[in-house]
Amino acid sequence: MSRVRVESFTLSLDGFGAGPDQDLQNPLGVGGGALHGWLMPTQTVQQKLFGQPSGETGIDDDFAARGFRNVGAWILGRNMFGPVRGPWPDESWRGWWGEKPVYQVPVFVLTHHARAPLVMEGGTTFYFVTEGPEVALARAREAAQGQDVRVGGGVQVIQQYLRLRLIDEMHIAISPVLLGRGERLFEGLDLPALGYACTQHQTSARATHIVLSKQ
């Protein structure tokens, strides 16, 4: 069976996976953009997001690149798709990523409000799932056709899948920044009791990389 993975999810030194007050100018909340100082310069991100042939290689890029290997579908929370809250006023919001998102596979968005599938360029289709995380995962597994499912976040979505013990492996990057406020990823979670242990750790100049695996 395909694995369920979290990849390249970054935490601040004080444990926040996003800053407060997300809006159009602050997709990761106020101050949240600083979390990804390790990720944005990598060759993987420069090529996939910006179409640039340049970018840094090394430890950070190795972890960024592994996050796209053998991924056949993604799961995102509503807030990761965009800042629109409540019932969809219309279908004008099409994501943060332009008409050709980086995913290039089916993406299942957890939401309380139904919306028709959104077909984008490059192979990405967003499906809006109102039946909860387990249904979203079942649909993502089917779409992935034997490849892995990547849970992209945000914090509350990862917490749901951790509590259900449905995440097999999770790569966390700890960035040397302090946010002070926002959403704490491990708030209220007892990871050892849920069966998770640290199975890898490696440090670069910009981040400490941790892999947690379900035992």
Rank of each mutant, 00 (worst) to 15 (best):
K48A: 13
K48T: 10
K48H: 10
F50E: 02
F50M: 13
G51K: 12
G51Q: 08
Q52M: 14
P53R: 09
S54H: 13
E56I: 01
G58S: 05
G58P: 03
G58C: 09
G58M: 07
D60Y: 06
D60V: 14
D60Q: 10
D61R: 05
D61A: 01
F63K: 02
F63V: 08
A65S: 14
R66V: 12
R66N: 02
G67E: 04
F68P: 00
R69A: 12
R69W: 13
V71D: 05
V71C: 04
G72L: 03
G72N: 00
G72S: 07
A73K: 00
I75D: 02
I75E: 04
G77Q: 11
R78S: 15
N79G: 06
F81C: 10
F81P: 09
F81L: 06
G86F: 15
W88T: 04
P89C: 07
D90R: 12
E91V: 10
E91D: 15
E91L: 11
W93V: 03
R94N: 01
W97M: 14
W97F: 15
G98P: 11
E99C: 01
E99K: 11
K100W: 09
K100C: 03
V102Q: 00
Y103G: 00
Y103R: 00
Y103E: 09
Y103Q: 12
P106S: 02
P106F: 03
P106H: 05
V107A: 08
V107N: 02
F108L: 14
T111A: 10
T111G: 09
H112C: 11
H112I: 06
H112S: 12
H112Q: 15
H113Y: 15
H113C: 04
A114L: 06
A114H: 13
A114V: 03
R115A: 13
P117I: 00
P117H: 03
P117V: 00
P117D: 00
P117S: 04
P117Y: 01
L118S: 07
E121S: 05
E121C: 00
G122E: 06
G122Y: 00
G123P: 12
G123K: 05
T124R: 07
T125L: 07
Y127V: 01
V129K: 04
V129Y: 02
V129C: 11
T130A: 12
E131G: 03
E131Q: 15
G132L: 13
P133M: 07
P133G: 04
P133D: 05
P133V: 02
E134S: 14
A136K: 05
A136E: 06
A136L: 08
A136D: 02
A138V: 05
A138M: 12
A138N: 11
A140M: 07
A140I: 10
A140S: 09
E142S: 10
E142C: 01
A143I: 01
G146R: 10
G146Q: 12
G146T: 10
D148M: 10
V149L: 09
G154W: 13
V155I: 15
Q156L: 13
I158Q: 01
Q159L: 10
Q160Y: 13
Y161I: 08
Y161V: 01
Y161A: 01
L162E: 07
L162Q: 07
R163V: 08
R163M: 12
L164F: 09
L164G: 11
R165A: 14
L166F: 06
